[in-house]
Design a protein around this nucleic acid. Sequence first.
RNA 1: CGGGGCGUGGCGCAGUCCGGUAGCGCGCUUGCUUUGGGAGCAAGAUGUCGUGGGUUCAAAUCCCGCCGCCCCGACCA
Length: 483
Amino acid sequence: MSTEKDFVKEICSRDVDFSQWYIDVVRKAELADYAPVRGCMVIRPYGYTIWELVRDALDDEIKATGHQNAYFPLLIPESFLQKEADHVEGFAPQVGWVTAGGNEELEERLALRPTSEAIICEMYSKWIRSWRDLPVMINQWANVIRWEKVTRLFLRTTEFLWQEGHTAHETREEAEEEALKMLDVYDDVLRSVMAIPAYKGIKTEREKFPGAEQTYTVEALMPDGRALQAGTSHNLGQHFAKVFNITYLDRNDEQSYVYQTSWGVTTRLIGALVMVHGDDYGLKLPPRCAPYQVVIVPIIYEESKSGILEKCNEILNELRGAGVRVHLDDRDGYTPGWKFNEWELRGVPLRLEFGPKDLEKGSVLTVRRDTREKQPIPLDDLNRELGELLDRIQVDMLEAATKYTVDHTTTITDRAQFLLTFKGRPGIVRAPWCRSGACEGKMQEETGATIRFLKLEPESAAGEKCVGCGEDAEHWAYFAKAY
RNA sequence: CGGGGCGUGGCGCAGUCCGGUAGCGCGCUUGCUUUGGGAGCAAGAUGUCGUGGGUUCAAAUCCCGCCGCCCCGACCA
């Protein structure tokens, strides 16, 4: 008898080569595949369903917080993009261009949107006339194009799907409140739907969005010790309003510029989901974003086949009726063992095994994907027990991921030790910082790590010395190597 | 964009050094037996060896160019 691990022949072990493991899982679980164009991928039905579940949950939250969806065009005239200097400079190397329509060269080339600030601000300047028009709270679900040099499935692709919210307000305070509110929404969806724990924080000057006044982030730690920005929310101040001339007559009968925000999350979240929860058996999905929450595997012997299948279909219909996303794997020609491995690889949170023994006992065997724990439950009680079990899996997965994140967040005050620590993959390191950008750059050169965030209320590091320069530190910063 | 590695049936690889009619395992198709953790037997199908050129009687193999993928570094969600 071989060890259990030998069953997973198709994917690289996570400890052997994390990157290879990630790619294997994404492809073998049929989340995505490479497309013919460099850096582009096809999101396959199983992966897209996960995206739909996350998207729908987030969309509900976006609407519940007073926003409406709209759609702006993919093509942006070059002159629009160039209105905001920092913005252009930030995105210039990554913009794809349309230079011809049919056989005719265009007079002005058109950018494939890398983000929609330019086109949306242009429209806002037309639409906003009075303080009575404010706030404007619009979100769009769209694709964007960024010509990346190095791409990885879901984590960084030339084209990706995202949601971008763009709001305009009367006051700085209102914009600030909005930016922070949406950060909370992201944090909440990450935790409650994807079971991904994240730190909410502020980006430094160097790391913030081109053209933003303040950038907020939800930052999650991956099992290879690198941090991943899972979502961003920007307080844009009046920067874009001034450039795009978004003015209105305010309550004092004077022309004023609006205050704006923008915020977004992308299909990168799927990459985070794979990494945070997956193991050597493959994908591991939390119930709330699993295409199938439950898979039923019938154990078929010739003499009892029809009875087993009949009962399995009853179970299927009962669970479906209760709103569970459930699948009955009644394929011929695959052994139960084969199916067990396949559905584990694809991350289904809960498996039900049903065979002659269970029929006799009036129960069904449940097997959790996260803990691999097996437990028979009586058929009479199926609905209630399964609901509880799925809830528990969701909670336990968040807890496990949270424990990992906390365990791999360490505080270091000594410069030498700081440098040494980043020779490895220490996860997130909390260290004192003097707040100078030069120092930040130097640390990046020395360690490869960047400041991922400061706490929303930056923690005073009075009395400590900056790990970069040794001068008096101001605040605690959170360093990590990043995706 | 720099450094390294790899491109051979769907997948994983051997063959390349030393040129001589392309192979293995898995998967796939059909049939029978099977089915509680990746079943067995039998019969089958599947390749312009990434691509373009060159050398040669002869190229997966030697030479040059290009493309793609992966890993490690600089930029980004």
